[in-house]
Write a protein that binds this DNA or RNA. Structure first.
Length: 268
DNA sequence: ACCTATGTTGATAC
DNA sequence: GGTATCAACATAGG
């Protein structure tokens, strides 16, 4: 699930539901999710601290505390943030208990990291695949500028270089941060650019158009609830036709990820 | 049963 | 250094 839009919604949930609360206990016993920390290390740094702010760059989130320690959170491939047993996007409280709402996406058994607050509530990283990650004081050195905020000049210089295919370039988190597989396909389809174009061959006006469209696609996805709400996402399947022009959608593996594009509007 | 697929990233090899 | 490939995890589905 989680690309920039999902992470931003998770960050907003943390901001409105977790700030100001005091941490009483920490479960950091999943050594894969909490690597390279030892069990108890994160707990020792955070127990007794109060959460004061929630931040994001690309797909990396972190919570600052009233101590010297920050709590880094990465949702990986399937992670969600759950506060007081409600995740962002869940049906209203009580719906599940009454049996008239959609079931929660993941049972509590997939909580890989948990903060228990002094008020009795809890915050969890719920992640069935365990590819999410929790770290103290996360290192942001290798994370490029946020895809939703990068300036035109920086975007031109960063994205318009190299001979890797355009799709691989915009998914490179050290180049710009936040774009994943679905947002990349959605954005390139909206612009009408081939995912195979060598990034360094793009003209400045193409890069500007790409940046504008990426920001629009990102905004739309945040507002609508996630990258799966993209216009072309339902057409990423065998036999589908482009919803704009009717030409066949094509598929290939690019940058290690399954890529779909319109055979007509996104010619190389 | 067996094979593929999946929104991520990081280590490794060329 | 930049780029490509595979492995890490745990499912779900054909």
């Amino acid at each position: 699930m989680p690309e920039l839009p999902e992470v931003e919604r998770a960050r907003a949930l943390l901001e409105r539901a977790a700030l100001g609360r005091r941490i009483e206990a920490v479960d950091d016993t999943d050594t894969f999710v909490c690597r390279p920390h030892r069990p108890g290390e994160i707990a020792g740094a955070l127990e007794g601290a109060t959460l004061v702010s929630a931040h994001r760059r690309g797909k990396v989130m972190w919570l600052e505390t009233d101590r010297d320690a920050a709590l880094g959170l990465h949702l990986g491939m399937a992670g969600r943030i759950v506060v007081d047993d409600a995740a962002e996007g869940d049906p209203p409280d009580g719906a599940e208990a009454r049996g008239d709402g959609a079931p929660r996406a993941h049972p509590r058994g997939w909580d890989r990291f948990t903060l228990t607050f002094a008020d009795g509530g809890r915050l969890a990283l719920r992640d069935k695949r365990r590819l999410g990650r929790v770290r103290l004081d996360p290192d942001l050195d290798g994370v490029g500028p946020d895809a939703a905020e990068v300036s035109r000049a920086v975007f031109r210089a960063a994205v318009g270089a190299g001979r890797a295919p355009l799709k691989a370039r915009i998914m490179d988190q050290s180049v710009i941060a936040g774009v994943g597989n679905l947002l990349a396909d959605e954005t390139l389809w909206r612009v009408g650019l081939s995912p195979h174009r060598p990034a360094g061959e793009l003209a400045d006006d193409e890069l500007d158009h790409l940046r504008r469209t990426l920001r629009a696609a990102t905004r739309d996805a945040i507002r609508r609830g996630g990258v799966h709400t993209g216009e072309v996402i339902p057409f990423r399947r065998r036999g589908a036709a482009c919803p704009r022009c009717g030409a066949p959608m094509e598929r290939a593996t690019l940058g290690g990820r399954t890529t779909w594009w319109c055979s007509e509007e996104q010619r190389g």
